[in-house]
């Protein structure tokens, strides 16, 4: 599916800063517009309309995502949805997709190089892409690498105590999500996907605004990410189909955007109307195409996969 880049209502996500622009009509009457941050909303509208399994490969834009080896404010995203399946099926898609790309590249290479290794090599490390990949829940990695009981960490007061004991700075306005990420980034992320891809699943619900919660434990959501050599490549949900819950979460996100001084906009009422007529049960994932190129071209910086990275234009 080709989805629009120029949009009127970005999906309300407080952690994403948008690019703002203006549409002028013939009388130069102004309408606020934005550059798409992901093809999610148009694809879900098409799912409601009955398009079935679908995908989009498109440019997406996220402002302020600079000064980083794995972000460019303009990037390419592949997003796909499957109807009537849980997110565990998308995990298999990811395994198949990466194996397919790797096998294809090996075929084109082997003709000219008899000694080529069959492993994927990224930044000096050999990676075994064969199925099944390693699967860990967030709770498991917290115990394994941070020596933290996630059960206890889910309680904000306990999390503050654990973080303070570990030497992190906990201030009045420090949020639970910040503590979670700081432990994750400092103690866990670099261990993921070493020698073999890691699928990290069952995220805390508060970190999965558009995902369904797990029926047996509503504190965690059906969301997964996959990592290779510490590089995060994709983010998947069992999609939230409840329009009331979606509208509530958009409201909360917009409040958070206002509070943090980000660019404000109205949420997409048309999307809520679409959800009211029924989004089929489905799972979807977004994978960063530039990061896939980084992986298979063996580059440490996303800028090296782009002919005109934004930072070089400034």
């Amino acid at each position: 599916m080709e989805t629009p880049i120029l949009i009127l209502h970005p999906p309300a996500e407080s952690y994403v800063e948008v690019f703002e622009t203006t549409i002028l009509d013939r009388y130069r009457k102004k309408t606020h517009a934005y550059l798409s941050t992901s093809p999610e909303v148009p694809l879900k509208k098409l799912l409601v309309a009955g398009i079935g399994n679908c995908f989009s490969i498109t440019k997406s834009f996220r402002n302020t995502e600079m000064q980083s080896n794995i972000h460019n404010p303009e990037f390419t995203m592949i997003e796909w949805y499957r109807i009537g399946v849980p997110y565990t099926e998308i995990m298999k898609d990811c395994e198949d997709l990466l194996l397919f790309i790797h096998t294809y590249l090996l075929r084109t290479r082997e003709a000219s190089d008899q000694q080529a290794t069959k492993d994927l090599i990224y930044q000096g490390a050999h990676i075994d892409l064969s199925k099944p990949w390693e699967r860990f829940t967030v709770s498991e990695v917290f115990l394994k690498w941070a020596n933290v009981s996630f059960e206890e960490f889910l309680n904000f007061d306990t999390a503050k105590k654990i973080a303070t004991k570990k030497g992190y700075r906990v201030e009045k306005d420090t949020s639970w999500e910040e503590l979670y990420n700081q432990v994750f980034l400092n103690e866990i992320e670099s261990h993921l996907g070493r020698g073999k891809p890691t699928i990290l699943y069952e995220f805390p619900s508060s970190l999965a605004a558009l995902a369904k919660t797990k029926a047996a434990d509503p504190r965690v959501a059906e969301r997964f990410e996959f990592y290779i050599e510490g590089l995060e490549l994709g983010d998947c949900y069992s999609e939230l189909t409840d329009w009331k819950e979606q509208e509530k979460r958009f409201g909360e996100e917009l409040k958070a955007i206002k509070k943090s001084g980000g660019t404000t906009y109205e949420y997409d009422k048309d999307f809520i109307v679409a959800l009211q007529s029924g989004l089929p049960e489905c799972s979807g994932i977004a994978v960063g195409v530039d990061r896939l190129v980084m992986l298979f071209a063996d580059t440490a910086k996303i800028q090296d996969t782009l002919l005109f990275p934004v930072e070089e234009l400034l």
Binding site: Q67, N181, F184, L207, E232
Partner: peptide, 14 residues
């Protein structure tokens, strides 16, 4: 230093 945006949540500085 480099900025990090974990999937969800505010920015961090590595």
């Amino acid at each position: 230093m480099t900025f990090v945006n974990p999937g969800k949540g505010s920015a961090f500085v590595r």
